[in-house]
Write a protein that binds this DNA or RNA. Structure first.
Length: 146
DNA sequence: GCCAACGTTGGC
DNA sequence: GCCAACGTTGGC
C-alpha cells in the first residue's frame, strides 16, 4: 500500500497502531482491498518522498467495509455518487507490525531479479494498492534484515 | 461506444 | 518543474 509520507507515514501508523485506510478512489485498488483477508500482511511504501521505497510491514485488522468519508462533503475525497445504500468505496483497517531499520528504496528493489515482475515496479504503475506474491514478500523481508 | 480533453500520480 | 502513463469525463 502506497502512502505519501508527508500525508501519512509509517511513523504515523506506528503511533496510531491501527488506522482506517480511507480515501481510496480507484476501482482496481478498491477491488484489491476487497480481496484482502484479516491477518494478511502488507508492505507500506512511501511514494513521492525521499527516500522512495518500502519502509515496513502492517497487517489487515479489519476486512473491507464502507468508506464513509466518500459521503462527507467536507472530505478531500468526497464522492457525490456515494450513498449509504451504495457506498461505492470501501476501506480496510490496517495495524502496524514493524518498521524496517532502513527503507528498501525503489532503486534497490529494481536491482533484484526476483522482483522484476512485482506489480509496483512496472512502468507507469500508479495504483496505490497492488498485490504482492508470497515469494516476493519473503524475498523482501530477507532483504530488510540485511 | 468512441475518443479527445483533462486531471492526477509519481518517478526523475 | 517536467512529463509519461493512466483513469475519468462528457460530447457526439
Amino acid at each position: 500500500m502506497k502512502t505519501e509520507s508527508g500525508c501519512y507515514s509509517i511513523d504515523d501508523l506506528k503511533k496510531d497502531r491501527v488506522t482506517a485506510w480511507s480515501g481510496v478512489r480507484n476501482y482496481q485498488a478498491r477491488n484489491f482491498m476487497h480481496d484482502m483477508n484479516k491477518g494478511d500482511l502488507i508492505f507500506i511504501y512511501h511514494s513521492n518522498t525521499e527516500p522512495i521505497g518500502i519502509v515496513g510491514i502492517a497487517k489487515v485488522s479489519k476486512e473491507a467495509y464502507p468508506d464513509h468519508t466518500a459521503q462527507d462533503k467536507k472530505d478531500e475525497h468526497y464522492d457525490p455518487k456515494a450513498t449509504t445504500a451504495k457506498p461505492i468505496w470501501n476501506m480496510v483497517d490496517v495495524r502496524f507490525v514493524k518498521k524496517f531499520p532502513q527503507c528498501i528504496t525503489l532503486a534497490e528493489l529494481k536491482t533484484h531479479k526476483k522482483l522484476k515482475n512485482m506489480r509496483i515496479l512496472q512502468k507507469g504503475n500508479r495504483l496505490s494498492i497492488t498485490p504482492v506474491t508470497k515469494s516476493e514478500f519473503t524475498h523482501i523481508e530477507k532483504v530488510a534484515q540485511r
